Simulated assay, not measured.
Amino acid sequence: MTAEKAPRLKLRIGTRGSPLALVQARQVAADIERHSGGEIAGEIITFTSTGDKLTTERLINSGGKGLFTREIDEAVDDGRCDLAVHSLKDVPGEIPAGQELVAFPEREDPRDGFITVSGIKSLKDLPEGATVGTASLRRESQTLARRPDLNIVTFRGNVQTRLKKLEDGLADATYLAMSGLERLGMAHLASPVPIEDMIPAAGQGIITIAARPDDLDNDIVALLRKLDHADSRKAAIAERAFLVELDGSCRTAMGGHARLEDGVWKFDGEVLRPDGSERWAEKGTAQADASEADLAALGRSAGQRIRAAAGGDLPAFEDD
C-alpha cells in the first residue's frame, strides 16, 4: 500500500477576470508553485471590478483611480483571498491599511503601443482630422500635444474589446500597453511608441502582488517576496513616489517612468493640460547602486519641480 500524498497548500489569488489579468495571475501562480517546489498551488478567484463595468465613460465620472482594484482589495481585507495580483498602474498611491505591495515581478515593455487597421505605424502619419480612441487622459493629452488636429473618442474595455472597436471603425487608431500585448502574444499588432514621445503611466508594464503580511504565515510571506525583481521594485518605488507627490489621479494627465540605463537610474516625468496645449516635464538621475529611498527621492523631486513650474495647482480634466 502506498502512502497518500499530502494535499498541497492553496493560496487564493484575487484578480480581475479579463484575459490579460488572468494571464498575469496564472504566471504568479506558476511562480509560487515553482518557488515552493510544488508544495503550494494558486487558486485563482476572479472579480468584476467597478472599472470593468464601465464600457463607454471615463473613469473620472465614476470615482477615478482604484476602480480596478477596490473589490479585490476588499476580498484580501476580509480574508476571501490571500493575495491579489494587480497591474501596478491601476493601484492608487494610497493602498488599504494593513496591505503591502510585497513583490514586483520583472517588468515587461513599459511603452505604449500604437495600433491601426490601416497599416499606419505612427501618430504623425495619421491623416488630418483622424480619430484616436482612448480612455486614458494621459494618452489623450499626449496625443493632442503632438497632433492637435486629431479627434479623441472614448475607448473603454479590455484589450479584446478595444481591438474590436478599432476593427469596427469606431476610430482610426488606438493605444494599448506593449506589456499587455506581449503577455497575450499579440505584440505584433502594435508599433511601440518611443518613451521620449509618450512617457508611460507610472507603473506601466509592472504587475504587483498585494497581501496582508500580518495575516499570513511568515514562510508564505517569504515565498511571495521571492517573486520580487529588484530593479522593477526600484522603478516602481520611484514612479509611485512621483504619483503620490502630485496626488496623481485619473483627473490629471501625467506620466512617470524610471529605468536603469547605461549604469545610471534615469527618471522622466510630465504633466499636461487636458488639451495638450501645455506640458511640464522634468528629468532626474541617480547612481546605479541607489537605495530604494534614493529612488523614492528621485521621483518625488521630479514631482515637486513640476508642481512648482505649474504654479502649484495642476491642470485637471472635468467630469463630462
Rank of each mutant, 00 (worst) to 15 (best):
E108P: 00
R251L: 13
H35M: 12
H86K: 03
K234I: 00
D247G: 14
I13T: 04
P92R: 03
S291W: 00
G205T: 02
G98H: 05
I44H: 03
A30T: 12
R273E: 15
E100D: 12
R305N: 11
S232G: 14
P194A: 03
F114G: 08
M198E: 14
R111N: 02
L272R: 13
A316G: 01
G180R: 05
A84W: 05
R307C: 04
V271C: 04
L166W: 10
P148K: 09
G42W: 10
H257S: 10
I60P: 02
V102I: 15
G157P: 12
L20Q: 09
E261H: 13
H86V: 05
R139P: 02
K89I: 07
T46F: 01
D294V: 00
F114Y: 02
V117S: 11
A286G: 00
L224T: 12
A171C: 15
G185T: 08
E4Y: 08
I199N: 03
I40D: 07
I206S: 13
V193D: 05
E239W: 03
V244Q: 12
E182T: 14
G303C: 01
G119Y: 00
P315Y: 06
R300H: 13
D52S: 12
E33W: 07
L189Q: 09
P148F: 12
L54D: 13
A30Q: 15
L216K: 09
E140I: 09
E108S: 14
I195N: 02
A201I: 02
M1G: 15
E71D: 12
D78Q: 11
G37T: 08
S301W: 01
K164V: 13
L216E: 10
G255E: 04
S191Q: 12
T55L: 15
G37Y: 08
V159P: 05
L243P: 01
G185P: 01
G263R: 05
Q142W: 08
I237D: 01
A210G: 14
R259C: 11
A190P: 12
R307S: 07
Q204Y: 01
L181T: 06
A297H: 06
A235K: 04
R16M: 14
C81Y: 07
R12K: 15
D112C: 10
S191V: 05
I306Q: 02
L272K: 03
T252Y: 02
E282C: 07
L163T: 11
D125E: 15
V91I: 06
F267M: 05
S18I: 07
D313S: 14
A316V: 15
E270S: 11
S232E: 05
G263D: 08
E270Y: 03
L123P: 10
V193G: 08
V221L: 09
A230S: 13
G205M: 04
K124C: 08
F242E: 07
G248R: 01
D149Q: 10
D90N: 11
L11C: 08
